[in-house]
Amino acid sequence: MSEYLETPAGRRIAFQRSNGRGPGVVFLGGFKSDMTGTKAAWLHDWARGQNRAFLRFDYSGHGDSSGVFEEGCIGDWFADARHVIEALTDGPQVLVGSSMGGWISLLVARAMPQRVAGLVTVAAAPDFTEQGFWAGFSEAQRQAVMTKGRVALPSDYADQPYVITRRLIEDGRDHLVMNQPLPLPFPVRMLQGTADTDVPVDWAVRLLDHAGGDDVRLTLLKGADHRFSTSECLALIARSIDDVLA
């Protein structure tokens, strides 16, 4: 059953956690996904089997949390993640960031590195509002975003289109991580599928090159797609968490 946490901004964040030894594991999900997804649920069960503390949650406008998805932005979801980690966990945590959650986890790591024991990213999508959406928009789509405040894009993961707002784009520019130094002074394991059609492999390679740190590795899994949820993918995520903890 979900519990709820009120943030300083007045957002009601749904979360599920299990107690266990530390460092705990915190799962940060993707754009328009929620904590009932395959990776989040599987990792919760895995952590329980390891007697490892675990936390998963829904950003505002996602899942069971308050708010409207289309009104949210990276800054809001980063603030949600930061508050959840500060309020609901003790000591350094291993962050597991999937897709947009990879970007959010990098923002958390930059803001409070003392609370990060290690980082595992899964198809990380840093700066995707800029290097994905904005860079890929036609001139007509850019005009629609700037004059009408929104544009609708078809989704491979839901019946309804994604509505991309001017606020999402402009706020994203305030939270870029690839345009300035990105020190990661803890073990980092980046995972990426070669058949991912949402996050190109070269994004993963660029992030590897860009990140600062003495223990940063990228693993490419041949044939894995963006969901990264097959038994082989899930086992690789778990091994990567173990590797970081070791």
Rank of each mutant, 00 (worst) to 15 (best):
T147D: 12
G149C: 00
W134K: 08
Q141G: 05
L88W: 13
F57T: 10
T36D: 10
K39I: 10
G97C: 00
D76P: 06
D90W: 02
A47Q: 12
A144I: 03
F54V: 08
V68E: 15
C73S: 15
V122Q: 07
K148V: 02
Q141L: 03
A41L: 12
W77D: 03
A125S: 14
A47S: 15
F128A: 01
G136Q: 09
R110H: 14
F57Q: 10
I104N: 01
R48W: 04
R82H: 14
C73M: 09
R82W: 14
Q114W: 13
H83D: 12
A144T: 03
A124C: 05
R110G: 15
D64K: 12
S33K: 08
R52V: 00
A81L: 09
W77C: 01
D58T: 06
A79T: 04
A109S: 15
W77L: 02
W77G: 00
S66F: 10
A111S: 07
D58C: 02
G49D: 13
Q131T: 13
G37D: 12
L107Q: 06
G101V: 09
W42H: 12
R150A: 13
G61L: 11
M35E: 12
A117Y: 10
R110T: 14
F133T: 04
D58L: 01
K148L: 10
R56G: 05
Q143S: 15
Y59N: 09
H62E: 06
V145D: 02
G91P: 06
V84T: 01
S65F: 15
S33T: 14
I74R: 03
H62K: 06
S66M: 02
G102A: 10
D58V: 03
D34S: 09
V108R: 03
H62Y: 06
R48A: 14
Y59V: 04
I85Q: 05
W103V: 10
G37N: 14
A87P: 13
Q93Y: 08
R48I: 11
V145S: 02
A111Q: 00
L55W: 12
Q50C: 05
K39A: 04
S105W: 06
Q131I: 13
L106W: 09
T36Y: 05
A135V: 04
G118S: 02
L119Y: 02
R142Q: 11
L106G: 07
W77K: 03
P113L: 08
Q131V: 13
T121P: 02
